[in-house]
Amino acid sequence: MRTDAPQPPRSAELAAMRELIRRHKRADIVFGLVGLVCMMVGVVTLLVLFVDLMIDGLPRFSRDFFMNFPSRHAERAGILSAWVGTCLVMLVTMVAAVPLGVAAGIYLEEYAPKNWVTDLIEINVTNLAGVPSIVYGLLALGLFVYIFGLGQSIATAGLTLALLILPVIIVTTREAIRAIPVAIREAAYGVGATRWQVVADHVLPYSIGGIMTGVIIGLARAIGETAPLITVGALTFIAFLPPSPLRSEAPYVSFEWLLSPFTVLPIQMFNWVSRPDEKFLLNAAATGIVIIVATLAMNALAIWLRYRLRKRIKW
C-alpha cells in the first residue's frame, strides 16, 4: 500500500478504466436480457402449445363430442366414456388419498417423536415423490389387479393415482401446519386441551386452506396422469358407461361401478394420437384442450387460493 497521496491517474489510464467499467456494465445489461429471454422460453412454449391445440382441436367442440362414445368414425367419436371415467376415478382417488395424506401429515408434524421410525417415514415420503409415475402402474398391476383381485377397474385406477399423489398431499399438509405459530398450540395446551383437541379445534381449521391447495394440486396432477393407468390396463375403447351409482330401489346406492372397466381422458387422447388417420389427431387435440383446461384451471385455483390465504391470515 502506498502511503503518499494518490496521484491523479493519467488520462490514458483513466480512459482505459472507464472503458472497463462501461464494458462490465454492458455485460450486466446483456446478461439481464439473456436471462429474460431464457425465462420466456418456457412461457412462450406454453402459449404456443396452447394455441396449437386450440387451432387443431377447437373446431371439434360440440355437444356431440362430449355426449358420444368413441367410434371408428372420427367425426362421430366423442369423449363421453372418457370424461365420466375421469370423474369417477378422481372421486376414488380423492376419497382414498385425502384422509390418508392429511392424517400422515398431521402425524409427522404434530405427533412424531424424533427417532429412526420418523426419519424412515420422512425419507420414504421424499423418495416416493421422485419415483417415476409408471412404476406406480407396475405396483398397481402386481398388487391391486392380481393380488387383491380388483381387476382392471375404476377402483384400481383410483387407488393407483391416490398412492401417486400421496407425497404431494403429505408435503403440503406439513407445510400448511408448520406455518401455524407455536403460540397458538401452547395457548390451547395451557387451558388443558389434549393433543387431538389441539389438532382438531385449532391446527386443522387454521391450516385447511393450505391443505386444500395441496389437495387441488395433487388432483390436478392425477387428472393428467396417463402412464400408470395404461400399465394397469385401462382399455382404450369403451363404448358404455359404468353402472350408475344411484338406484331407484333400496338401498339406492350401488358400488358396482367401482369394479367396472373404464377409460379416462388422457388415455383416450393417447389412443387417438397413436392412430395414423389425421382426423383422429383432431379429436386428440380437442381432448387435449379439455384435459389442459381442467388441469390449468385447478392449478390456477390453487395458486389463487394460496395467494388469498397468505393475504388474509395475519398472526
Binding site: G42, L49, L53, G224, T226, V273, I292
Partner: peptide, 12 residues
C-alpha cells in the same frame, strides 16, 4: 403451470 401440463399433451 408449465409443470402442470399433462405429459400426454406434451407428447402430442
Amino acid at each position: 403451470l408449465l409443470e402442470g401440463v399433462p405429459t400426454v399433451v406434451y407428447g402430442y
